[in-house]
Design a protein around this nucleic acid. Structure first.
Lengths: 163, 163
DNA sequence: CCTCCTGGGTTTATTTTCTCAACTCAGCTT
DNA sequence: AAGCTGAGTTGAGAAAATAAACCCAGGAGG
């Protein structure tokens, strides 16, 4: 009864995603980037990360195309670089919102969460400020699926293990 | 024009969530638990993690109530313990699905993802095997929000920084 | 009752990674 | 020319991860 083949985890996308963004500090840097931080010194000040580590993390994020270096020049300053999320980096938003939501549910201060993510409708749309949450939904239209109503099925790239 | 107060990140739920599940291997252990793995040796074999590290990670996960030790006894064996996700651990599902989805989009093998998460309707419901994705939706009913249509607003626990 | 086997871990040594602090460097201002 | 600033390097010490050997409680086999 337990004979269904196991899916190997060697090429699982979760591992690969974590290989890119799973190092210490990396998701926090991305979070600050979503909060609008762009400059080396601001990341450093807000996170309290060591500067050499921040430098290597930013390099990795640029290499993996999660962030991009953008030249800028302040009036009366020399040219420098700042860091912004690429579309690939912006697509990490659900990961961060999911972590935020989990942390809010189980680890928040008694007075409540410190950040609420709200919907900001684009220009020309009717304004909306409703709080945002992350939900699981299936292609058949069922939404807000509970976490135990999911099944892991092998995909086209699956490698199976005999049990 | 940049005078809106910044939200401090000291009590952000993302940091707190990452303090619990952000260490190396932790989310991979949780992933395996979702895949049905329960025993020390199976975690070890499937992940290739060193046994001492697995032991400390499992201890931490039990302490933080993400997992639970459950006694079991195989016929002709002595009593041992296995590990299962608590409801708190099960609530990490959206985090893992979000990571999976991001990895599938940007890092999968050319032949496609190795795992597809499908909806498994509960007993008594009409069966559904449609693939599942994670989406951002707002309380006003807007669904599948793009990652840049969000705004971080201070919540009740927010500590603000003067800019 | 003595030995072997098995699953689930410790212990110990080595390597890698993080942290902290000091230092560099290019160019702008005085 | 000297000093300041933001954005990093460099290097030493502490902490964490890896690897591999070892331990240990009990059941099975003899």
């Amino acid at each position: 009864m337990d004979a269904e083949p196991q899916i190997s985890s060697v090429n699982c996308s979760v591992s690969r995603a974590l290989a890119v963004v799973g190092e210490r500090w990396t998701l926090l840097i991305v979070r600050e980037a979503f909060a609008g931080v762009r400059r080396f010194g601001d990341f450093r000040a807000r996170l309290g990360i060591a500067s050499n580590l921040l430098a290597t993390r930013l390099d990795t994020l640029v290499e993996t195309e999660v962030m991009r270096r953008v030249p800028y020049r302040e009036p009366g300053g020399r040219q420098r670089f700042e860091y912004e999320l690429t579309p690939r980096g912006a697509d990490l938003r659900p990961v961060l919102v999911a972590l935020l939501q989990w942390g809010d549910k189980y680890l928040a201060d008694p007075e409540g969460p410190s950040v609420i993510v709200r919907h900001r409708a684009g220009p020309g749309e009717t304004p909306c400020e409703a709080p945002v949450r992350v939900v699981l939904e299936c292609a058949a239209g069922h939404s807000a699926l509970p976490p135990d109503s999911l099944r892991r099925a092998p995909g086209p790239g699956a490698r199976l293990i005999e049990p």
